[in-house]
Nucleic acid binder design. Structure first.
Length: 277
DNA sequence: TACATTTGACCACC
DNA sequence: GGTGGTCAAATGTA
């Protein structure tokens, strides 16, 4: 990466992103082979480095309005950074309503017959939504405070007859290590979930894959969930090769690279495994 | 007692 | 000004 320092920023940026893609492709093929976790780990570090460098370049290219502050960059780089201390009791002042309305980007959705997705969620709100028959429920990760996990989701019933269907929108990535919960809490109905990435295409109907994977595990949803939150995270670089995983991972990175950026990137090769909206 | 849920209030965003 | 997202006190539950 350092060898690009003499070139113009635009070229450096492109090279970083292309490198990142190459590493990702290598990682993808590597993950198809067993016992390659060390190499995979190395590749993930390279990918991480490429994207970090690219973000830095982008930041230096952009005007002041578009540039991230250093703290914002660090926040992206180190989602687990911080004190790690419990924040159960914040400042004395009433902070109700003090929030930034989130963007819809960086989110993905699924529709299923159950709310259960194998993660530990805690409900923190419910709201009647305009023009909607059913209220929307707001959930955050149970480990928001003890592990500073920022994952949240919104669940809304979209139909009740003939069967109850839930529309779930996920925001942010889990940074906690406690996404695994006892088997009995899973619901096989999760296997019928439809996963959508943000507001774009339906990505995967899991049913067929579930049938195939039943021999490997009697709890396929746990695999989905561990893929969902952990596999592409730098802190736990093990991954499974599945389209679903790739799409979830794309959702994770979506928070770092915008769709506009991806359009530019597309000039330099097809993005196959990762789908951005 | 600890943790989860409910619910009204607050306020940023459109 | 209306709507939606979040907070936190009150309440419920194991």
């Amino acid at each position: 990466m350092e060898e690009f320092l003499g070139e113009n920023p635009h070229k450096r940026l492109i090279k970083e992103l292309v490198e990142g893609k190459i590493f990702a492709v290598q990682l993808q093929s590597l993950l198809k082979q067993p016992n390659e976790s060390v190499l995979a780990d190395e590749l993930i570090r390279k990918i991480w480095g490429s994207f970090t460098q690219a973000i830095t370049e982008l930041n230096s290219l952009g005007n002041s309005d578009n540039s991230l502050t250093q703290s914002q960059i660090e926040e992206v780089d180190q989602p687990n950074s911080g004190s790690g201390l419990k924040k159960k009791k914040k400042e004395k002042q009433d902070r109700r309503g003090c929030y930034k309305r989130r963007k819809t980007s960086g989110s993905w959705m699924r529709e299923s017959e159950t709310m259960n997705d194998g993660c530990a969620w805690r409900k923190y709100g419910q709201k009647k939504i305009l023009n909607s028959k059913y209220p929307r429920c707001y959930y955050r990760c149970t480990h928001k405070y003890d592990q500073e996990c920022r994952a949240t989701k919104q669940v809304q019933i979209i139909q009740e007859n003939p069967i109850k269907m839930y529309h779930t929108t996920y925001f942010g990535n889990h940074t906690c290590n406690s996404t695994k919960i006892p088997k009995h809490t899973y619901n096989s109905q999760f296997n019928h979930a439809m996963v959508k990435h943000s507001d774009s295409t339906v990505l995967k109907e899991e049913e067929e894959e579930e049938e195939e994977s039943k021999g490997q595990s009697d709890n396929a949803s746990s695999i989905v969930d561990s893929n969902l939150w952990q596999d592409f995270m730098p802190s736990s670089p093990s991954a499974h090769d599945s389209t679903l995983t790739a799409n979830y991972n794309a959702a994770y990175y979506e928070g770092v690279i915008s769709s506009h950026d991806m359009e530019d990137l597309a000039k330099f090769g097809e993005i196959e495994a990762i789908e951005f909206c």
